[in-house]
Design a protein around this nucleic acid. Structure first.
Lengths: 189, 189
DNA sequence: GATTGTTCTTGACATAGATCAAGAAATTAC
DNA sequence: GTAATTTCTTGATCTATGTCAAGAACAATC
């Protein structure tokens, strides 16, 4: 079972036969560091799965880049409003390291639903799960201090702090790089 | 066409025949002010649609109530992780005014999918749309000041500020009631 | 309609976090 | 391997927002 199949199994709970079918629609794509998987404003009909590497979703607002999320192995990367609703993409998605993705385009994606009876249902459940994760993230911002948000992310994924420039993490946490640096110093000391 | 049908049509783009069928599964429910539609920790298999009134979704964290959202006419109220994944509810859902809801339970909800071929697809699209709304809300918190968040909500729904206690709005905006009061004073002056 | 409890505002003050600036450390490019 | 660039830290200062407290306005209750 490939990584992709393993993750699809975890996320979607598909059966073994289906897994092979599903994953066969995905094609490997390599990104070099700093390559864009997607740029704001473009139409995107691609959904990616991160096999290796680290990739950042962000948006430019005025003169600032806001990092919405950083995806590592096992995450899907996609601009949902573009992929599903055919809107211009809202996010930039850029490789922070060399990345290997499995990518599927809309046409092949539709094909999955054709071949696998329960696919739309599984999809729904997956998106619903993602929705609840975002709900939590909102609550995080309504109820926690910068320091608490930092600790939460640090506990969730310590490694990340060694793998990507910290100012991206600061942005994703809703604080300045200076503040993140000071919070780190605080626990270190 | 009832309100419920109108909204389902808007949200889900269902056909006229289907609408009647779908809406027939919903049952009217009245809530008095301060009644709970749902309490944290309970299992909930109900989905509500707000026909009239105002209803608040919140969670108790330590000694503070965090208001996640305030729903008015035309919104659905539900604890998605409970409704879909049968988890204990994460949110309290409480009427801020007298409310008339249309409510459906899980069993009848399943029934819709039985009767309407495209339902799961429509559902998926609806949840995906909700997901993108939450994405925006995250960005709001990563990129805007309290003042900007206040103005955004105010422009989105001025009426709300006359309809519900302001400290709930403050919480939902991620600020204290005092700060909200001062921001209001600022624009008034 | 007096009483009680909420809600809202305002002031004084405290503080978390932002901003600005500069240097050190690390990384990348030539 | 030196130069250029980016990242990270640290200090000084500023500011937006929080906290605490008190009174005013309003609404709910008996």
């Amino acid at each position: 079972m490939t990584e992709l199949e393993k993750y699809i199994k975890n996320y979607f709970g598909a059966t073994s036969d289906d897994l092979t079918k599903i994953s066969s629609f995905f094609k490997p794509v390599s990104l070099k560091k700093a390559d864009y998987f997607l740029k704001t404003g473009k139409q995107s009909d691609r959904l990616g799965f991160v096999r290796t590497g680290i990739i950042r979703e962000f948006v430019q607002i005025d003169d600032k880049e806001i990092t919405k999320w950083i995806s590592t192995q096992g995450y899907f990367v996609v601009d949902l409003s573009s992929f599903i609703f055919h809107q211009p993409a809202r996010w930039n998605i850029q490789a922070l390291t060399e990345c290997e993705l499995f990518v599927i385009d809309d046409k092949n994606y539709q094909q999955i639903a054709q071949e696998i009876q329960r696919w739309t249902e599984l999809e729904k459940l997956f998106i619903a799960k993602c929705f609840t994760v975002l709900e939590d993230r909102i609550i995080t911002h309504l109820s926690m201090t910068a320091e608490e948000r930092y600790h939460q992310l640090f506990n969730f994924n310590k490694e990340l702090f060694n793998q990507v420039p910290l100012h991206y993490l600061a942005s994703m946490l809703g604080m300045t790089p200076e503040t993140l640096s000071r919070l780190r110093g605080k626990t270190r000391a």
